[in-house]
């Protein structure tokens, strides 16, 4: 019996990598939303608008990356 250990290891490593990457990206997006909220609440102090907008832009990029991962997942399911 021939067991393909390297394919198994690859599968495990890829699964681990994708999970951590997606969750980290999503968490950064959530953090961005949280920062924006804080900035909006603190409106009136030094340059709140810029901080808030930057945080929102960052969050948008993160969520877009996650959406891309989901879309790739969908193509794998339908393949």
């Amino acid at each position: 019996m021939n067991i393909n250990w390297s394919a198994l290891a690859d599968t495990a490593a890829v699964s681990f990598g994708i999970t951590v990457a997606v969750v980290a990206t999503f968490a950064l997006g959530v953090l961005g939303l949280s920062r924006r909220e804080a900035a909006t609440e603190a409106a009136g102090t030094a340059s709140p608008a810029t901080t808030g907008t930057l945080a929102l832009a960052g969050a948008t990029v993160c969520f877009a990356a996650c959406a891309a991962a989901v879309a790739y997942g969908l193509t794998l399911i339908a393949a």
Binding site: A24, A27, L31, L33, R35, E37
Partner: peptide, 20 residues
């Protein structure tokens, strides 16, 4: 992933992160 998620969002407001 859980470790990373808690680490990254530790300074965010809990209400917003939970909702997210």
């Amino acid at each position: 992933a859980t470790k990373v998620a808690y680490l990254i969002t530790r300074k965010g407001s809990e209400k917003t992160t939970t909702k997210g």
